[in-house]
């Protein structure tokens, strides 16, 4: 799932090399993905009124449901 977050983010930004995803496993199937992108690309992964961020979370949530996990994506 980390790869999924990474792939989506890299497909949206202007500096794919600067995309970093950190997986934080809280145990019990609860996982947080911290997404970091270049300062100038923040808008690309957040979007107007957070629309892009919401779409990314929605897709990742679909993947998580399948694996019976509870996943959150945080953009740093």
């Amino acid at each position: 799932m980390k790869e999924l977050v990474e792939f989506i983010a890299k497909s949206l930004v202007e500096h794919p090399d600067e995309v970093r995803v950190t997986e934080i496993d809280h145990g019990g199937g609860v996982v947080t993905y911290e997404l970091r992108v270049a300062e100038s690309d923040m808008g690309k992964v957040i979007g107007r009124q957070g629309r892009v961020a919401r779409a990314i979370r929605s897709v990742v949530k679909a993947a998580a449901t399948r694996q019976h996990k509870k996943v959150t994506v945080e953009i740093r």
Binding site: S11, L12, A55, S58, V59, K61, R66
Partner: peptide, 24 residues
Amino acid sequence: GILIGRRGETLDALQYLTNLAANR
């Protein structure tokens, strides 16, 4: 079903992201 989601929520999200990626 997993790609469609409740009331097409996942499909809409995928559609939005696909449009952004194609027109980056």
